[in-house]
Amino acid sequence: MSKPKNVWEEFFANRRSGGHRSSAEQFLSKEAKEKLFHLDGGKTLLDFGCGAGELLVYYAPEYEKLVGVDFSASMLDEASKKIRERNHGNIDLILADDKTIWGMLDSSFDRITAAGVIQYLTDEEIDKFIANASRHLNKGGKIVFFDVLDPRLYPLWKIGLFSRDAGCWKIFRKIGFEVLTIISAILKNRPKDILGYTHKPCTIEGIANKHGFDMEYVQSMYYEYKYHAIIS
């Protein structure tokens, strides 16, 4: 991929909603419950890449203090609206990215999480993220990467193999579309896949182990081509 971070920042610059399968409150509520189950307690939480706060506002009742971080001002504007609407006084928002956030924090956390974000980081950037996060993690805390693109399942999802109406003709059509998308991206010097990088569970586990953590791999309930990396 060419110049990924600049492209991601440009892509999200004016967006006002996250990449959830559905924006319906019923779906977001269920998705948040699954993630809260894996977060498994704690009193303070840092949500990196919180986007428009769709999940953050569901986390709020379960924590004493929360900090939401994102590099998109438009996303944080939407998150701020949601927070005011629900009258959550325990959430602070910070405009920052994976490099600048660590110098802006004045406290440590029981949980540091990122949902649908790690796909925009390279292996080297994930390594640095875990190293930095470990310095802001309370004893017994967890780093949880939600919804990481699984390189074993994501290609199958892209060609429609998990669709209810999957068929040979539809799969061939999707394969053709993906090939054209890749060619177009190369010609325009854009990322081949706007959803970012896939990461093998063993790769993230190896990085976690390097920094003295264990990692548990859990399949996502609501995205068949994604998994959660629970690092503790």
Results as ranks from 00 to 15, higher is better:
M1L: 09
S2H: 13
P4R: 12
W8C: 06
F12Y: 15
R15A: 10
H20I: 05
A24K: 15
F27K: 00
A32F: 12
K35F: 10
L36M: 11
G41I: 04
D47G: 12
G49Y: 05
C50M: 09
A60N: 13
Y63Q: 11
V67S: 03
S72D: 08
S72R: 06
S80F: 02
S80E: 11
I83H: 09
H88V: 02
H88Y: 11
G89Y: 03
N90F: 02
I94Q: 00
L95A: 05
A96D: 04
A96G: 02
W102S: 02
D106S: 11
T113P: 10
A115W: 08
A115M: 10
V117R: 11
Y120C: 05
D123G: 12
E125D: 13
K128L: 14
F129E: 15
I130V: 15
A131M: 14
A133Y: 11
S134V: 12
K142D: 15
F145C: 12
L149W: 13
L156Q: 10
L156N: 06
L156D: 09
K158W: 05
L161G: 01
F162D: 06
C168D: 08
C168Q: 08
K174N: 06
L180P: 01
T181M: 03
A185T: 00
R190M: 03
D193F: 00
I194Y: 04
I194N: 02
I194L: 01
L195C: 01
G196E: 05
H211S: 05
M215R: 07
E224S: 12
K226I: 05
H228W: 04
A229G: 13
S232Y: 09
